[in-house]
Design a protein around this nucleic acid. Sequence first.
DNA 1: ATAAACTCTATAACAACTATAGAGTCAATC
DNA 2: GATTGACTCTATAGTTGTTATAGAGTTTAT
Lengths: 135, 135
Amino acid sequence: MKIGELSKVTGCSVQTIRHYEKEHLIASAERSEGNFRLYDEAAVEQLLFIKHCRSLDLSLPEIRQLLALNRSPGAQCDDVNRMMDRHIEQVEARIQELTRLNEQLRMLRRSCSNRRTVEQCGILRNLSATPVSSG
Amino acid sequence: MKIGELSKVTGCSVQTIRHYEKEHLIASAERSEGNFRLYDEAAVEQLLFIKHCRSLDLSLPEIRQLLALNRSPGAQCDDVNRMMDRHIEQVEARIQELTRLNEQLRMLRRSCSNRRTVEQCGILRNLSATPVSSG
DNA sequence: ATAAACTCTATAACAACTATAGAGTCAATC
DNA sequence: GATTGACTCTATAGTTGTTATAGAGTTTAT
């Protein structure tokens, strides 16, 4: 299987697959006589694993760590759990942050009721006046 | 006021201020004899405006647009409103996405109850098995 | 032989900074 | 007057996870 077919089967773009190889998320592929990368079913499964992790917003280094653990089945899985917990924490923190942000944005948006000119626009006036609390 | 003081007053780093100048978010500063940037109170206010917008996750191009509108007080403020509405939509979409993500992560996390080895770890098994729905 | 479709490597772009190197400026001290 | 330290300058590279491009080579079909 050449890289184009692997791309179709997995839904990862060709460049992304090459990128994952460069980042050592997948092993360097065997090459054909003409220097084309050749893949098998194991590559498909590994790419789908990676894709699933990415859909959960796990970073490439995190995925690399999971793959390493996956290759050493005797290892403790505490590490996996710690990583997941940390990741869940991050996601929840981000949700809270965005929720606060959303409230501020809606409040700001209400301050302009489509008056005619920018001069009277509450949004811009508020953006100028309101103190900054770095979020 | 030199760039270091502006940085302290506004809480923006020196590099960020220079970056904003390069990106035309603030005007090119006057220079001293020794080629140091010199700022006044107007620069402070503009930087704080930018910082406030950034804390609301507005992009630099969006901020550039707001600043342009701010400079032409006769302009209609429909544009400001449209931008805010679009931005609020984006933030809300992202919150929904992360909330779904969080549910999946928690479900996954529950599948490992600290059994001994990675081989028995439900998290890794599920990551391998579960079909991917690109989020 | 040639064209189309594919692949290769290397490099740049995206966003919004942050960090670094190497040089220049300024005020104060010895 | 030389030197030290704190500051500033420009230019460049790094961050993250791709995507896009250029220019070349390979394979398959006509």
